[in-house]
Simulated scan of single mutants.
Amino acid sequence: MGDPHGIAIVGLGVISRAYLETIGRHPGIRIVAVADLDVSRAQAVAAEFGAEALEVAAAVARPGVQTVLNLTIPAAHAQVALTAIAAGRSVYGEKPLTATLDEARQVLDAAADAGVRVGSAPDTVLGTGIQTARAAIDAGRIGRPISATATWYAPGHERWHPNPDFYYQPGGGPLLDMGPYYLTSLVQLLGPVVSVTGAASRTRDSRTIGSGPRAGEVIPVGVETHVTGVLEHEAGALSTITMSFDGVRTVAEPIEVHGELGSLILPDPNGFAGDVRLFRLGDDEWQVLPPSAGFEDGARGVGLLDFVAAAPGEERASGSVALHVLEVMTELLASAKTGTRRPIGSRPERPTLVPLTPAAVWRASS
């Protein structure tokens, strides 16, 4: 058992509570400092976990901090990451890696120059849902993969989120908000993407907040709210993706993968678990596969635990995968504007499979 890994958390909004439930009292983690625009919120979290509430620059530079957990809104991801890297800290952040591809490249280049590491959510892909499907593909249970579909529809986050503005500005939209779960899953399952072709639309230029103290307020829409596209994977498979803030509901499965010998249906990649179903050529019905890989009972923050424990270059929720996913999303939107097929330049290593790891093990490791 080594010393706990020192963490500074920047951004203590809604998602931070999910992380704190996983890492707050984990024996392998020590929360050293926290920072938030809401000083009272930072002070409350600091008191709860024995940390210091500081301004961002002071929090990331606080002695004892080794990694900064960046839970700010997408527009602030790059600035916080670069501040942390300049202080010699590694960074693990929420998705997307940054709001723009240029910022992402700047962050990864700065980290390489500083000799520190970058990781990024989503870590849901490390749960038993996606990892069990990946194990089945790697074992040849569907034969050579041919195609996949990834589908998500909703009428828009303004219906439930009290401050949904950032979902409808650059760095937001259904693709950058929900796409990372699906695209990171597809990279796990089928490997990196080499080209994309996309189309997109925007049904209206404003949205009305439906809950909270701002209910009834009209906010502008500055992004495309329905995006669809085709991805060509390096190994030859074709994936079709649709992400939408304009639909009401769908009966489409979240992710399907089809091969020469069988098909897989995967659970929602915004969660860690769920049934993985297999139908092989010649079968009469779908079979549910028992969990065979992944972190059991996974929770937000398990990717950070994996990140701090991994040797350099072996992080599963890595910055290189996050940059690749951001490039895919960026080029899908560019393709939608130009009407052309767009190449993808980044080629991350496909992360290694997560062995089946009971919750009692990963929750107690350091």
Rank of each mutant, 00 (worst) to 15 (best):
V187M: 04
S263F: 03
V60D: 02
T149P: 03
S318H: 07
L326G: 01
P145V: 10
G345T: 15
L333P: 00
A322E: 03
A133F: 01
V80H: 01
Y168F: 05
A18Y: 09
T128I: 14
P267G: 08
T250Q: 07
G24M: 07
L305W: 02
V60S: 07
T240S: 11
P27A: 12
E260L: 13
L353E: 07
L281D: 08
Q188R: 12
W160V: 15
G210E: 08
T330D: 11
R280I: 04
V125A: 08
K337P: 03
Y92S: 02
M329S: 07
S211Y: 11
A61F: 05
V32Y: 06
H161N: 12
P4K: 10
L261E: 14
D102I: 13
R207A: 13
S90L: 05
E52C: 10
G173I: 04
V276P: 00
A360Q: 13
A35F: 11
V116T: 12
A364G: 14
V321Y: 04
P74L: 06
A322G: 06
T357H: 08
V32H: 05
P180K: 10
R214D: 10
G127Y: 01
T72W: 03
P213F: 12
A215M: 12
I265T: 11
E256V: 15
R341Y: 05
A86L: 05
G294Y: 00
G229Q: 08
Q106H: 04
A299I: 09
G115H: 05
P74K: 06
Y167L: 08
V221Y: 00
G172T: 01
I219G: 02
T132K: 04
N70W: 01
L69T: 02
V68M: 04
A44C: 08
R347G: 05
T184H: 11
S244T: 08
D138S: 09
H161T: 09
E55C: 13
L20Q: 02
A87H: 02
L126F: 06
A139D: 05
E349Q: 15
R89L: 06
V14D: 12
G212Y: 00
P192Y: 02
I344T: 06
D3A: 13
V68Q: 01
R277M: 11
I255H: 04
A154T: 10
D113Q: 15
T149A: 06
L238F: 09
L71M: 03
G303S: 14
D123W: 03
V56K: 14
G171R: 04
A53M: 10
R316M: 12
L304W: 00
L238I: 14
A53H: 11
A35T: 13
Y92H: 08
P170N: 02
I219K: 08
R117T: 08
A154R: 06
L333Q: 02
P291E: 07
E296D: 10
G271I: 08
A334C: 07
R134W: 01
N70P: 02
D113T: 15
S195I: 10
A35D: 10
E349K: 15
G28P: 03
E315Y: 07
S263G: 12
S239M: 11
A61H: 04
D246K: 06
D283V: 11
R30N: 12
S365F: 10
L82E: 03
A112L: 11
A293F: 00
R249Y: 13
G172C: 02
A58Q: 15
